[in-house]
């Protein structure tokens, strides 16, 4: 699956399904299981419907009626985070659990 059509066409995988959604939503919108299911069914259909290597199945879903998000993605500010060299946890609790787990493994050898 892909939401970056030009990059996928450059890589040229055997089969692809393109969803024209903002990055971070390759398989749907949050908490919309019915939509997520429809998207995945359409993508998985490519396993039988695509018969020529390098074909991209253009999925028929739209993020919104206007093109505001595409404009922002093409020309908006750079919102990438710095490339830290240490693990970046979603929660402090995750860090504590991971470090406890690593210590336990080291202790038991």
């Amino acid at each position: 699956m892909t939401s970056a059509l030009d990059i996928t066409q450059a890589v040229n995988p055997p089969r692809a399904a393109f969803l024209d959604y903002p990055l971070g939503h390759t398989t749907g919108k949050p908490h919309q299981p019915i939509l997520q299911r429809e998207i995945l069914l359409a993508a998985l259909a490519g396993f039988s419907s695509l018969t020529a290597p390098g074909t991209v199945n253009m999925l028929p879903f739209k993020w919104s009626d206007d093109r505001a998000w595409q404009e922002t993605a093409q020309r908006g500010p750079d919102d990438r985070r710095p490339r830290y060299a240490t693990p970046q946890y979603q929660h402090q609790e995750d860090r504590d659990r991971a470090e406890a787990h690593v210590s336990a493994v080291q202790f038991t050898g």
Binding site: G24, H25, T27, Q36, R37
Partner: peptide, 26 residues
């Protein structure tokens, strides 16, 4: 966790980039 995309929705519902519930349903 990722440096290059907006994580807001993935943190609310991982199924937007990791369709685990969707696959289990199918």
């Amino acid at each position: 966790t990722h440096f290059a995309y907006d994580l807001t929705d993935a943190r609310q519902d991982p199924n937007v980039v990791f369709p685990i519930d969707t696959l289990r349903g199918l």
